[in-house]
Design a protein around this nucleic acid. Structure first.
Length: 468
RNA sequence: GGCCCCAUCGUCUAGAGGCCUAGGACACCACCCUCUCAAGGUGGAGACACGGGUUCGAAUCCCGUUGGGGCUGCCA
């Protein structure tokens, strides 16, 4: 695809909660368009609703964008600092007869209409010639005629005459509403393309109308399919786990998150599924964005995370994983070395970094529930453990190869196989039936610690089952 | 209720009238590999919502039905 004209796009979240994955996808697509066209992305904080905004959410937005590895070229600008400007524009609209003051309460509007009538404003104050005053909001006078929205993704969407009510652009408190503020900003900052979630499509004709009233050329609009949960409902901060921050804490990496998000609603047209940011810039195009809602599938996200973890260099893996185990490592004098040795062994065994402490904790602190371990022992296990304990003590050298050789020989001697023999040993050494490779783990722990752990389980077992 | 959007395996999707016996990926199942668990390898099961058109020919175009979703706030 040949480079197009530089796009000026914007990402305009409102700080009313945790930054969520839908927002992450929206800024990603905007960012990709900006980069691909050698244009720019503006970050705009839509904080006109002082009731619901909180400063910590603003910080959350910055942090999340940074974590994702994205960024912005212009801003951040705060709509809350431009209130006067929006008001001036609104007053202009009033002076031009494109807006009128209205003192109807919601209740009054409902009371006027016959029961069962659809909700919505009835235009009561349209021609009352009200002037500005307390309790009066400013409504946009929607002109007669269909409104056509040309959408980059969906084509022409027609909103028939009469389907758009006279909507409020300034509250009675004179606080501007978001359609107005957005249009004014999009004009002032010469935004060329407005790319946002599909839930905004119904308000787009209002934006178009304001642009026309302001005699400003329209930006291009594009509406991305919404992200839905298992019940196929729009992802909700209340019902669903959607906070980018949550995924970060669970041990998801930003690269697979971005990669997964890119593919939710867009596809490259071939079978590729792994993309770096640069490759995304190269491959991305709005033409290949889908039309239908997409389920945010954690299972698939996990797959991407796991793949990325597995493909990290051992050093890189150690570094990204370290924050999840620092306190564990500190528990043991040789903790650092143990961590370094075990890290490569678990790299392909975890889906998220938060699984790490459970998987390798036994190397740093060990206080298993022996009663539970004993309940997992099978008939021959005490015998196996006894022989293993002895054989390992007799070993001249204690390293991974020696331990493995010893146990393989022992398995033959005991007329069993390694699979069966290692099971109780693993329980004794790691405290769990599954985990990292056993021989490596034992070598890391050293002979004494292994011996102690084997003995401990043996003693506990003998005490619990005197007959064996 | 009104307006709008959407409709291919369970999920994300490929498919822009014949290349489709519908392809890939996740998940699932089986087998192989294997010190457990993973990873890796091989194979399997699994979808064009329905009904009418248009056409020599439809997953692809049109209409309708059904289903799902979004909006319907002096929120964004």
């Amino acid at each position: 695809m040949s480079p197009s004209n530089p796009e000026k796009v914007r990402f305009a979240p409102s700080p009313t909660g945790f930054f969520h994955v839908g927002s992450a996808r929206t800024i990603l697509y905007n960012w990709l368009i900006a980069r691909k066209s050698a244009g720019s992305l503006m970050l705009r904080i839509d904080d006109t609703d002082e009731e619901r905004n909180r400063e910590e959410w603003v910080d959350g937005i910055y942090r999340a964008i940074q974590w994702l590895g994205l960024g912005w070229d212009d801003g951040p600008i705060r709509q809350s600092t431009r209130i006067d400007h929006y008001q001036e524009i609104a007053f202009d609209l009033f002076r031009q007869g494109r807006a009128y003051w209205c003192d109807c309460t919601r209740e009054a509007v409902e009371a006027r209409k016959p029961p069962g009538t659809p909700p919505g404003y009835d235009g009561f104050c349209r021609d009352r010639g009200l002037t500005q005053g307390p309790g009066r909001a400013l409504r946009f006078r929607v002109p007669v005629g269909d409104v056509v929205v040309t959408d980059l993704i969906r084509g022409e969407v027609v909103f028939p005459d009469g389907s758009i009510e006279d909507f409020i652009i300034l509250k009675s408190s004179l606080a501007p509403l978001y359609v107005l503020a957005n249009v004014v900003d999009d004009i002032d900052f010469a935004i060329t393309t407005v790319l946002r979630a599909e839930e905004h499509l119904p308000t787009t004709p209002k934006a178009v109308l304001i642009h026309q009233a302001l005699q400003s050329p329209l930006p291009r609009f594009g509406h991305l399919p919404v992200l839905v949960n298992e019940q196929r409902r729009k992802l909700s901060k209340r019902r669903d786990r959607v906070a980018v921050e949550d995924y970060r804490q669970l041990g998801y990496l930003p690269e697979p998150m971005v990669n997964y998000l890119a593919l939710l609603g867009w596809n490259p047209g071939d079978d590729r599924e792994f993309f770096s940011l640069d490759e995304l810039i190269e491959a991305f195009s709005l033409e290949r964005v889908g039309h239908s809602p997409a389920f945010f599938d954690e299972q698939r996200l996990l797959h991407f995370n796991k793949s990325y973890l597995a493909n990290l260099s051992p050093q890189a893996f150690q570094e990204v994983a370290r924050p999840f185990v620092t306190s564990l490592i500190a528990l043991n004098d040789g903790g650092e070395e143990r961590y370094t040795r075990i890290a490569p062994e678990v790299q392909t065994r975890i889906g998220t970094l938060s699984e790490l402490p459970t998987m390798i904790g036994f190397l740093f602190e060990f206080s298993p529930d022996y009663a539970q371990l004993i309940s997992k022992l099978r008939a021959d296990d005490v015998n196996y453990l006894t022989h293993t304990h002895q054989a390992l003590n007799d070993l001249s050298e204690f390293n991974e190869a020696e331990v493995e050789g010893c146990l393989r020989t022992l398995a033959v001697t005991l007329d069993t196989n390694l699979r069966k023999l290692q099971a109780p040993i693993r329980l004794a050494i790691t405290g769990a039936p599954v985990g990292p490779p056993l021989f490596t783990s034992m070598a890391i722990l050293g002979r004494d610690e292994c011996s102690n752990r084997l003995k401990a389980l043996l003693d506990a077992a003998v005490k619990a089952l005197p007959e064996s």
